[in-house]
């Protein structure tokens, strides 16, 4: 299988690799770069466990090829934690508000909520529910995820800092 050279920035670090054309971005992140925070929960782009931030947009990394991300800047859950290990307000919020149980959807959910708060720093409950509706959770019933996002929005006070950018 022929391979192609790709280069991108992942969590602030320049990455270069040769990949098969058909390598999915999620497999590139997980298997090649050992970024196992984003997960795989379905094959149809429904669950959002694989959500990453790509050039300022939430993207389901199971639904694009690594070669399509050539030249892109990508942020995963690993890059949302501060370089000094400080947790982001969303990460605090998910713990404080009990917004997770098994933890499998959590990286994608937090990564999505991170972009949501960039798009809309003061979302209403309805806007949060709509804004995370591309991410499925089987454990929490979402009520505490909504609270976690509200917690972070309040803590950040509308002053959002881009992580690792």
């Amino acid at each position: 299988m022929s391979k192609m050279q790709v280069s991108m920035t992942v969590n602030g670090t320049a990455v270069e690799a040769r990949v098969e054309h058909r390598t999915l971005l999620i497999h590139f992140l997980r298997d090649h770069l050992n970024l196992t925070g984003p997960h795989i929960g379905c094959d149809t782009s429904h669950c959002g466990a694989c959500t990453v931030d790509l050039d300022g947009k939430s993207v389901k990394s199971c639904t694009m090829f690594a070669v399509q991300a050539d030249g892109a800047s990508i942020l995963t859950i690993e890059g949302i934690t501060g370089a000094d290990g400080t947790l982001h307000a969303l990460q605090d919020g998910f713990r404080e508000m009990h917004g997770l149980q098994c933890g499998f959807c959590t990286p994608g959910m937090i990564t999505r909520a991170y972009r949501l708060l960039q798009e809309n720093p003061h979302p209403t409950e309805e806007e949060i529910r709509f804004g995370i509706s591309g991410n499925l959770c089987r454990c929490t019933g979402y009520q505490n995820i909504v609270k976690a996002v509200q917690y972070a929005a309040e803590k950040l006070g509308g002053k959002l800092k881009e992580a690792a950018e």
Partner: peptide
């Protein structure tokens, strides 16, 4: 009590089967 396990899960540092290499 806040959950002990959340510290790793919110950072994407859980250890699920497919993470094992």
């Amino acid at each position: 009590r806040k959950r002990t396990e959340d510290i790793r899960f919110v950072q994407g540092k859980g250890n699920y089967v497919d993470d094992l290499k």
